[in-house]
């Protein structure tokens, strides 16, 4: 119903001063994505622009709610730009507007924003991939699985490297130390964020309800192959031999492997 579109436009206006400014300069363009009725457009345009800004901390509260799941990535991003405007600009980004328009999780929108922000710190992509996988995993936990064998709800697979994991841990440790005395943020001699070098040894991660664990490479490859196969058609236990053969893995009893992966909670069978 149309009032939901008006509600979405209001949400964007309450968080994005640039949108409010555009609303009065070029309302056609600013409001085009919301497809409002003429009367709804008129209602929104009739609002005193100052009213959108009365709660100046509203965007900060949203960031406070969503940033903890991407805390290392945010730390790396802000350490690079040394400007909080980097965080504030999230609300003017296509990622935020798109999330509001399409009812998507804001955490994932923030991850998309950081990924597209043109940042150059080499550790950021790896750290962001890990934190994003954790965020996706938490939101996937309640998924109702489809027919056949598939990754269990809440499981995400991620190929990464030891450098990304170390950078994630370094950023988290840095934030912990700052949190001991937030007054440090006021000081020019506050400790800098020191990240270990990027790269390192490949590692294969499974994220289960937001928790990371290391997987042997063959197991990672197996789960990945099942995940891919399940996107094409329901996977039966009898399909396991072919799936394993396609990735050049040989196991004595593929169906028993499937049973073991089900028992370990990596797979589900619908």
């Amino acid at each position: 119903m149309s009032h939901h579109s008006l509600q979405r436009a209001l949400v964007v206006a309450l968080h994005d001063p640039a949108f409010v400014a555009g609303l009065h300069v070029d309302p056609e363009t600013a409001l085009a994505p919301f497809r409002l009725e003429p009367a709804e457009r008129a209602q929104l345009l009739a609002v005193d622009p100052r009213a959108f800004a009365v709660d100046r901390l509203r965007p900060r509260r949203v960031l406070k709610a969503i940033a903890p799941e991407l805390q290392a990535s945010m730390a790396i991003a802000l350490a690079e730009t040394r400007s909080f405007a980097t965080a504030d600009r999230f609300f003017s980004s296509p990622a935020f507007h798109g999330a509001i328009l399409h009812d998507q999780p804001l955490v994932l929108a923030l991850a998309d924003y950081l990924a597209a922000a043109g940042l150059t710190t080499p550790q950021l992509p790896g750290v962001l991939a890990i934190e994003r996988a954790c965020a996706e995993s938490r939101r996937d936990a309640a998924r109702r699985p489809g027919p056949g064998l598939s990754l269990a709800p809440g499981i995400r697979l991620l190929a990464s490297d030891t450098g990304a994991l170390a950078a994630l841990q370094a950023a988290e440790q840095h934030l912990f130390e700052l949190s001991l005395l937030p007054h440090m943020a006021l000081c020019d001699d506050r400790p800098p964020l020191a990240l270990p070098p990027p790269g390192g040894t490949p590692i294969y991660l499974a994220v289960r309800a937001g928790e990371l664990s290391d997987l042997p490479e063959p197991l990672f490859r197996t789960l990945h192959a099942i995940e891919n196969a399940a996107t094409r058609a329901p996977v039966r236990r009898g399909d396991m031999a072919a799936i394993l053969a396609a990735i050049n893995l040989r196991v004595p009893d593929p169906e028993k492997l499937a049973a073991d992966l089900l028992a370990d909670g990596y797979l589900t069978e619908g």
Binding site: H3, Q7, R61, A65, Q104, P105, L106
Partner: peptide, 23 residues
């Protein structure tokens, strides 16, 4: 509305409904 999009942790950003019959 207490949250935008899917329910998530700690949003608590209260907004009133659009005051229409449909709503």
């Amino acid at each position: 509305l207490w949250h935008f999009g899917p329910r998530d942790r700690g949003h608590e950003t209260l907004l009133p409904p659009v005051l229409t019959r449909d709503s």
